[in-house]
Design a protein around this nucleic acid. Sequence first.
DNA 1: ACCTGAACACCGTTCAAGT
DNA 2: ACCTGAACACCGTTCAAGT
Lengths: 230, 230
Amino acid sequence: LQELRSSRLSRQLILDAALSLVDESGAEALTMRRLAETLGVAPMSLYNHVRGREELLDGLAEILVGRIGVPPSEDLPAHELLRRFATGIRTVARAHPDAFELVGMRPLRTRAALRGVETTLAALRRWGLSEQQAPAAYRALVSYARGFALAEIAGFTLEERTRRRTSHVTPHELDPGEFPAIAELSSWLSPRVGEETFFYGLDALLAGLAPNRRERPPADNRAPAGMKGG
Amino acid sequence: LQELRSSRLSRQLILDAALSLVDESGAEALTMRRLAETLGVAPMSLYNHVRGREELLDGLAEILVGRIGVPPSEDLPAHELLRRFATGIRTVARAHPDAFELVGMRPLRTRAALRGVETTLAALRRWGLSEQQAPAAYRALVSYARGFALAEIAGFTLEERTRRRTSHVTPHELDPGEFPAIAELSSWLSPRVGEETFFYGLDALLAGLAPNRRERPPADNRAPAGMKGG
DNA sequence: ACCTGAACACCGTTCAAGT
DNA sequence: ACCTGAACACCGTTCAAGT
């Protein structure tokens, strides 16, 4: 929370400060006014570099996808690249949980973001998926990784609230005896178990998406179509 | 936006009004003050039935999970019940996109919510998963379904913004020639393609989670563990 | 027990003025 | 081009007062 106005204001400076602010003080601290204060600047100065709060949040999302980083080399085995891609999403989410919760679902059309998409799509094609399957598989991987990460984060904050007795989540509180599986379900929040759980689902998804599985209809019939059987 | 104060205020009345308000006017319209106005009541009256805005949002989440509904009969084939469970999540999300975006990730400990969890876990056990696998598979299904639904919703609102030229999402705008796969990736937002894409991933996930797949280590070695190979 | 008006400490953003 | 103070139209919530 120190004034770190290194000289002049810039979009990049503002976004970095925004991420730090959220990391240190939580999502509800990210206010144009408090952010300006953090930078030692009048609130209105921010508007010279950022259109408004919405664009600020989009910028924050940009920073987060930048932090994911493209897997180091494109000549990794496709399966491994895909696994790292999904894992990278969850890793940033755990590094910046409040920021990820705030903007993790915003779709971006930055050149950088799109380059990442292209890399992953290429890996899916290289893996053996058809032109129609690859985008659907991409959506599946991203949906799973972000959904898992967000659920973890929400779980953390729920644990927080119940730990502090701040929880008035619902009219009825949890009766631990009544629902035996609940202990199992919340133990996943420990970093160790959470990681295992993440990879359990991720590897299941990858296995199910893998080309040339014998139950799958031939790859190039039509657009991605559902399969009925188990 | 009519005053529908049928007589007395109640928590249920408030929550219903909140959902209607969000459905009709978007998430940013859900304000204690505007909600009170909708109900023909002073803002402070709400606080007699709801602890504050946070609890109001939790209540909204409750309503949404209530709308998912437990699959009709427990003696459906397990695979089918699981498929309907995940599909139900996306269906409410599409019915109440703004509300779902607002509260769709809140973990609930309502008795009703927990009953739903138990039903799904039971189906996973019935399907053949071990006591350790079932909760991990549950997390995977929920992660995928919610992640997919939220991405769809965010995609809608991005399309909206770009259509209206309101989009200052990023510094660089999209060059359609530069990233050939982008057309493919946004076509999934049409309801038809979106549905196919959803089931493509869901069925892959279910196939990967299915018990007794031959590449899977025996079910009851240890806690859910990742598998390495493709 | 439920409802309320006034007030407090905040918001994001517009606008006109400064440099 | 960049920064700013004052002002506007909002927020959620506390508190004391009403019934």
